[in-house]
Amino acid sequence: MTFQVTIETSGHRFPVESGETILQAALRHSIGLPYGCRNGSCGSCIARLVSGEVHYPDGQPDALDGPQDTPDQVVICQAEPLSDLLISVREVEAERDVIIKTLPCRAEQLNRLSHDVMQVLLKLPDTERLQFLAGQYIEFILRDGRRRAFSIANAPHRDEYLELHIRHVPGGSFTGHVFDEMKNKALLRIEGPLGSFYLREDSPRPVLMMAGGTGVAPLKGILEHAFYIGFDRPIHLFWGVRAKQDLYMDELPRKWQEQYPHFSYTPVLSDPATQDHWEGATGLVTDALLAHYPELVAYDIYMSGPPAMIEAATPQFVSHGAQPEHMYSDAFEFAQDVLDKIKRTQQGG
């Protein structure tokens, strides 16, 4: 049986299916509600039940055991509706609403995806969850105070682990440690979520995505989120790597292309090996995108990858009509410097 939940403060409404919690349904319909542990312990997701009735299939959550709890409080990560509901709760609408945390975690699994890319699945303490927007990143805080940033490669609705794609950088002390020394269950410390690289869901514009190397990681998270919420605007992903062996998750976007009619995928090899027998696009991923879309004025553009790629692509895309306010990058600060240079050039400065 399906019930409707209405948020009093905004008027947003969404259906909750039988066996589904309020929070699960809200995330499925891209309604950003606050949460923490997702197991009913922390109280971060408590809302006020204005009207309606709920139940807790696994018993009353621990978050309702405090002396200041009131009968109208509802723990939305555990509560399932028994009727239509009206609730009062703060909504998470953008990165400014997401709480940045410093947390311990464990490298629960290390899976080699290719010769130089490691998938690292981070497990937070049982009482914690990291609420994030698809496309954001976390920073490892190393023992000497240094930090290393990596994008989150999974979508928020699938947050049992934080998925990272770490490429082995020759001479890199941290990535060398990940590949040569780190073991499963290794204890780490992170801060996040960080960044303004996330899907602008309220835009009516079609979407172009360009990734270089492991820059596909945050785009993977954004795409998983987009498919999950039923985002139906056209999306075209261009993924540039050196050779075929570097397309470490090539089967995933190919599967999406078959599954979702509005999604297209173009892998691009800059230096394919003879044994690749490659018949697809070659050269620079930027050129491949422009060959398909020489006029960019109507598009939202998401770029993720090496800063040099974004630095080179930004003025090219602007010269083809792309509007800076509709260009987003996980190297945002660096890209903003490029945009400032473009504006000064256009102004004769």
Rank of each mutant, 00 (worst) to 15 (best):
R13V: 05
F14M: 07
V16Q: 01
V16H: 06
G19P: 09
E20H: 12
T21C: 00
T21N: 02
I22S: 01
I22C: 05
I22W: 04
L23A: 13
L23T: 12
A26E: 06
A26P: 03
R28P: 14
R28Q: 15
H29S: 05
H29E: 13
S30I: 02
S30Y: 08
I31A: 11
P34T: 13
Y35A: 07
R38F: 07
N39S: 14
G40T: 07
S41V: 09
C42R: 12
C42L: 14
A47W: 04
R48W: 05
R48C: 00
L49N: 02
V50T: 06
V50F: 05
S51H: 06
Y56C: 02
P57G: 04
D58H: 14
D58Y: 12
G59P: 01
G59F: 02
G59V: 02
Q60K: 14
Q60P: 08
P61T: 09
D62L: 15
D62W: 10
A63F: 04
L64V: 08
L64I: 08
P67W: 15
P67C: 07
P67A: 11
Q68F: 14
D69F: 06
D69S: 10
D69V: 08
T70I: 11
P71Y: 02
P71A: 12
D72Y: 00
D72F: 00
I76M: 01
I76W: 01
C77S: 13
Q78N: 04
A79I: 01
E80K: 01
E80I: 00
E80C: 00
E80M: 05
L82W: 01
D84V: 07
D84L: 11
L85Q: 03
L85K: 07
L85S: 09
L86S: 12
L86R: 09
I87E: 08
S88N: 13
V89D: 02
R90E: 13
E95F: 01
R96M: 11
D97H: 15
I99K: 15
I99S: 10
I100Q: 11
K101Q: 15
L103C: 12
L103M: 14
C105F: 06
C105H: 03
C105L: 09
R106E: 13
A107R: 10
E108S: 15
E108M: 13
Q109H: 14
L110P: 03
N111S: 11
L113I: 05
L113M: 15
S114A: 01
V117A: 03
V120S: 03
V120C: 03
L121V: 03
P125M: 06
D126K: 12
T127G: 09
T127S: 13
R129N: 14
R129G: 15
R129W: 02
Q131W: 10
L133A: 09
A134K: 08
A134N: 10
A134R: 08
G135T: 09
Q136Y: 07
Q136P: 06
Q136V: 07
Q136D: 07
Y137W: 11
Y137Q: 07
I138D: 12
E139K: 15
F140C: 04
F140G: 07
F140A: 05
